[in-house]
């Protein structure tokens, strides 16, 4: 891999919670267009890595550079603007809002937000609305044609599988460079998990430039969709490589057995 293929470069990323070292001098690179699996037992710091990277928590030490731009001190809003979109381990949709509204939440930076545009220039607003509706519909259709006919229903009406799909659509609508998926299969059956992974592979086929970091526990899923894996334990990266290499690693086996 050459330098220009590196999309995200993290060096020495460290995060303390009081005395607890949740991320321990983590070095991690993500290349353009790859799917990187982020593995590790519960409590090993995977979600914390996402939270620090996306500006929810500050870095205690270290830095992150995205496409040549230092995002270490950026706010959550700025990181999103730089091209990083994410989903959450515990789904965080706006349940009382419609499917369309939820996806538009993810499109915030590409909407016209001026007072006169929104309140007075209603024709122009209607045009922007219709263009966005069509785009959101097309995106949802990649995941599920049935969902695309229910754009105006509240998200609370949908089962978990659809909610995960909607959450991923919300992250994708702004065409990010990097997509962070935090346990997208949590709370779903084996069957549903594989359906969702088909969707993710379909997205990948549509947008070859997009890099994805996915936190996932199910080994068959990891094997199927990741190009590369990194394993955390107690906030430290203990191993990095292809799935086959990673599962053969002695330290990784110990980490999982130790935690189990």
């Amino acid at each position: 891999m050459s330098e220009s293929d590196t999309l995200l470069s993290c060096t020495d990323v460290t995060r303390y919670f009081g005395g607890l070292l949740a991320l321990d001098h983590l070095d991690l690179d993500v290349h353009r267009g790859e799917v990187l699996g982020l593995l590790g037992p519960n409590g090993s710091g995977k979600t914390t890595f996402f939270n620090v990277l996306t500006g929810i928590y500050a870095f205690s030490e270290g830095r992150a550079v995205l496409a040549g731009r230092d995002v270490t001190r950026d706010t959550a809003q700025a990181v999103y603007k730089a091209g990083v979109a994410r989903t959450f381990q515990r789904s965080r949709l706006c349940l009382s809002l419609s499917l369309f509204d939820n996806i538009m939440v993810g499109n915030h930076n590409r909407l016209s937000l001026g007072m006169t545009f929104n309140l007075l220039r209603r024709r122009a607003f209607a045009r922007e609305l219709e263009a966005n509706f069509a785009a959101a519909r097309d995106l949802v259709e990649v995941f599920s044609p049935a969902l695309a006919d229910r754009m105006n229903e509240p998200v609370a009406n949908f089962p978990m599988l659809d909610r995960r799909r909607i959450e991923i659509c919300r992250a994708l609508i702004s065409r990010p460079k990097l997509l962070l998926l935090d346990e997208p299969s949590a709370g779903m059956t084996h069957e549903e998990t594989h359906q969702l992974m088909d969707d993710i592979l379909a997205v990948r086929a549509h947008t070859p430039e997009l890099a994805i970091v996915i936190i996932e526990h199910e080994t068959s899923v990891i094997e199927r969709i990741t190009d590369r894996c990194a394993v955390l334990n107690f906030g430290k990266k203990i191993c990095e490589g292809s799935y086959a290499e990673v599962i053969e690693n002695e330290e990784v086996r110990e980490a999982y057995l130790g935690a189990a």
């Binding site: 996306t54 500006g55 929810i56 706010t75 959550a76 809003q77 990181v79 999103y80 603007k81 979109a85 994410r86 959450f88 965080r92 949709l93 706006c94 349940l95 009382s96 809002l97 509204d101 538009m104 939440v105 993810g106 915030h108 930076n109 909407l111 016209s112 937000l113 007072m115 929104n118 309140l119 209603r122 607003f125 919300r170 702004s174």
Partner: peptide, 28 residues
């Protein structure tokens, strides 16, 4: 009504329902 039926109303709803998620989607 127009506030509600615009991107402004949508952004306000997003802020009310989940500040953290809203921030992660660029909403000030």
């Amino acid at each position: 009504r127009r506030v509600e039926r615009s991107w402004i109303g949508l952004s306000m709803d997003a802020v009310r329902l989940d500040e953290t998620a809203a921030a992660c989607y660029g909403i000030g």
